[in-house]
Design a protein around this nucleic acid. Sequence first.
DNA 1: CCGGCATCTTGACAATTGTCAAATTCACGA
DNA 2: TCGTGAATTTGACAATTGTCAAGATGCCGG
Lengths: 232, 232
Amino acid sequence: MRPDDIPAIRSLDLFSDMSEDSFHDLVRGAYMQTFPPQVDLISEGDPADFLYVVVSGSVELYARWNGRETSLSTVRPISTFILAATIKDAPYLMSARTTEKSRLILLPSQDVRDVFERDNAFARAVVTELAQCYRTVVKNAKNLKLRTSIERLANYVLRWSARNGGATEFELAMEKRRLASFLGMTPENLSRAIKALRPYGLEIDGARVRITNRTDLELLAKPNPLIDDFTT
Amino acid sequence: MRPDDIPAIRSLDLFSDMSEDSFHDLVRGAYMQTFPPQVDLISEGDPADFLYVVVSGSVELYARWNGRETSLSTVRPISTFILAATIKDAPYLMSARTTEKSRLILLPSQDVRDVFERDNAFARAVVTELAQCYRTVVKNAKNLKLRTSIERLANYVLRWSARNGGATEFELAMEKRRLASFLGMTPENLSRAIKALRPYGLEIDGARVRITNRTDLELLAKPNPLIDDFTT
DNA sequence: CCGGCATCTTGACAATTGTCAAATTCACGA
DNA sequence: TCGTGAATTTGACAATTGTCAAGATGCCGG
């Protein structure tokens, strides 16, 4: 593991409060690895051997059933994924693959569980992290069940605009195929949703997003902090 | 609070490991209350003033947006709800109402957070509980995104059959309107889904469920532990 | 036991979303 | 720069799901 990655992950909320000893125990058995794009990291159903930390690049979490596949989330630096499976020592519920060249840290799950048992500050940090994850998935479920695909797209764009400091123009963070899957629709349907939103003040040309009329777009999207605000 | 409710909630995984002192601190400020059916307990967006424990009856967690409403889960005895909001001191993401006459324990959130800070065993129990909640919602999201409404119904029935010890005949645990909402469809669509499953070995007459051909039903439902097994 | 009301079911229809095939655009390596 | 293959878009169509209205059923209180 590169020496300069240590302070980077140490500063994560999940690891910042724990004792120096515990942190040392955690990273002692860890290793860092760089993966090319589109590499399968884990497969749903596998035992949770590692807790992963995305240091650079990005990782897609997805799931399969009966020949169908859906994208559930994208993990960006610097954060961890599959913490719940690691702590519970349960099989992964989601598969993971890199979407681009990515540097990952792999922490052996047994070490994570050992430190979790010993270090109280770490145990509390895990709570905060899991509570955050839980609330994010609940918001996701609300988004899926309460909104049509056009509404989901409109709100997705507004969320990313907010994340970019309220920018009117920015780039899509993933290819459209993946975005469609994440939003719970087909790529064809996403194309049509994009066209349908043009009269409501949204233009997407390639990866370029332009909000031409925020008022109209918000009137249609009706963004709601209890679904769209990913800070609370 | 009735004296005989104390051992009942003390035996919950969430409370069983904590110190006697901590438990006492927790229940000292708690109060127990019995509510009639269809009483609104909390509303999404409200500050998380209490952690709730369902002692008897049942509570529906639901959410609203833009005039639409969807049922997200049903909490049955004995378990808690809205633990994540309580710990994070964040607004509720879901509303809650009793579905029947229910006895609930209300633990002031501040007390829960205080004990969480002090009692390490409790902090770890919270982790286990939250990890469980998280994985349940993830399974739910997979169910919604990967399956059609008919498949969701078929798997719902098989899950409840399993929960009833593999029974071939049992009663629906909620009215159809609520079930439809939970499964992400309209009541009309649920009616049709029920009819569509008759040739596949499922009969639902009123609240009575009869699996007449488990093989065919499973062939259609393709149940999967990574979506349908609520024990892992 | 009956009436009234909510739930559930059904039919007809509309909207949404998915599927398939073909055309077009785009990105990347030779 | 060009060619190749993947991604995206479009059109035509089908399947799924929702909406509305009406009728049937079931439950509860008087």
